[in-house]
Design a protein around this nucleic acid. Structure first.
Lengths: 247, 247
DNA sequence: CGGCATATTGAAGTTGGTCAAGGTGAGTGG
DNA sequence: CCACTCACCTTGACCAACTTCAATATGCCG
């Protein structure tokens, strides 16, 4: 496989120059690939975690189910993501993962990361940075879920999804994109019920903020949505000045 | 300063063996220290971020204020924490930080991290792991705030604080500890109002779950609280088997 | 002693949850 | 090609949890 068709390499090159060696190290992670069907549970909380996954295509999400059945989606993963970094320091998975759409994943054992740690401090810093940025989106999510009302929550979620998809080019120039997740999952992501997600999206549609055609969403007034949700695109820019020098 | 009185070194040594060189690298980060008075704002969202801080003593927390004044505490920082890792990839701070109690901080420029990246892949992996674990506590927080009721939220918060403090030994054998944050801040942390925090804590006290004496809290039935909140102590154990070898 | 921040308690108001009924659309089998 | 199913979405009526507003209490520090 050439590194040209690696969405991970493409994503990382947005932020910093990669050496040939770096590209080689990353390609090694995407060696094998495996197809997983929509609806499959990739991993369960408590399972031993020995592998990470680079997502080549498809969507998945991490979630937990509370004792009484309430469910919370913790993080949505998009093409180009490395799934499992959040499990690195744990012997057993902290939560479940479901594959939302048919997906192509490239699994690799987590101890293969040591090649990166040993050979490329710079690439290590870059991967860490990506994980910290995703972290920042979690802080945003905490802010949203902890203090915002339903419309603000949905606006924020749609903006985040739209901007994540833009990184891999899956968004039209009119800010339209396919969102293959059912409303119940969107609700689980932002802490609302499926019923109230429906009501809220309908209201946003009535107000001309968004349009929907089955599961294709269009952000008609993206700027306004940004104000409503006080949205910041965390992936816009990265500070790499502190990175260790290539050597 | 000897590394013996470094809470950062102490914390890290819980999880993996450190070489003399590692200890040296870490001590370099805690060279200078600076005292900051309770109530001071350490950093504001938008400020350039050039330094990280090792917390030697004291509490601080990160927060954001929404346009209409609603406030959300994003993360509480304890002694031994490295504050600012979450800002590494950003040119400007993503949110504000307030010092909650008089604190001693050791600031160091973020580009001094490259010594660690270059010289100790193993220490790099360890620091990354710590940041991923903190990440996991954020996921827990999202679960709590997104799907749990007031009692469950407060139970979870108290357990998390108690277990974080245990790492630095600030908890009595009867599970009692000083919690110097006003109830409004606790509410901002879990997405409740100060009023409802008061009601909820009173109710928990009536039920014999906790006891309070001014700001000293005792978890009378810690096990039961753990069930209520479905709490997991993320700092209990770390998988270091995948770490790059010392070389 | 006075002032200020914090905590408690009560009463009334809202947002979103719950329960339930119906509608829509894609996929399947006859 | 139609009927059946199943998953998902929508809408209405009622309800509960938490918020808001307001008054009062407590406690610390000058």
């Amino acid at each position: 496989m050439s590194s040209d068709d690696s969405c991970l390499v493409a994503k990382l090159e947005n932020y910093a120059e990669l050496s040939d060696r770096d590209r080689e190290l990353l390609s090694a992670l995407e060696g094998d690939s495996e197809t997983v069907a929509a609806g499959r549970v990739l991993m369960r909380g408590g399972d031993p975690v020995r592998r990470l996954f680079v997502v080549k295509t498809g969507w998945l999400y991490g979630y937990t189910i509370l004792a009484d059945g309430r469910r919370k989606v913790l993080r949505i993963h998009y093409p180009g993501d490395v799934v499992g970094v959040e499990q690195l320091p744990f012997e057993a998975a902290t939560h479940d993962y479901e594959v939302a759409t048919d997906a192509v994943l490239c699994p690799f054992p987590k101890n293969r990361l040591d090649a990166i740690f040993n050979d490329s401090p710079r690439l290590t810093a870059l991967l860490w940075s990506i994980s910290v940025i995703e972290n920042a989106t979690l802080l945003d999510r905490i802010r949203v879920v902890g203090r915002m009302n339903a419309t603000e929550r949905m606006a924020h979620l749609l903006l985040e999804i739209c901007n994540r998809l833009r990184v891999v080019g899956d968004v039209g120039s009119d800010a339209s994109f396919e969102l293959p997740l059912p409303q119940a999952v969107l609700g689980d992501a932002v802490g609302l019920t499926n019923v109230y997600v429906s009501r809220t999206l309908s209201k946003m549609e009535d107000e001309g903020l968004i349009a929907r055609d089955s599961r294709v969403y269009t952000l008609l007034r993206e700027e306004r949505l940004g104000e409503i949700a006080e949205f910041t695109n965390r992936f816009a820019k990265m500070d790499t000045t502190w990175f260790p020098q290539q050597h």
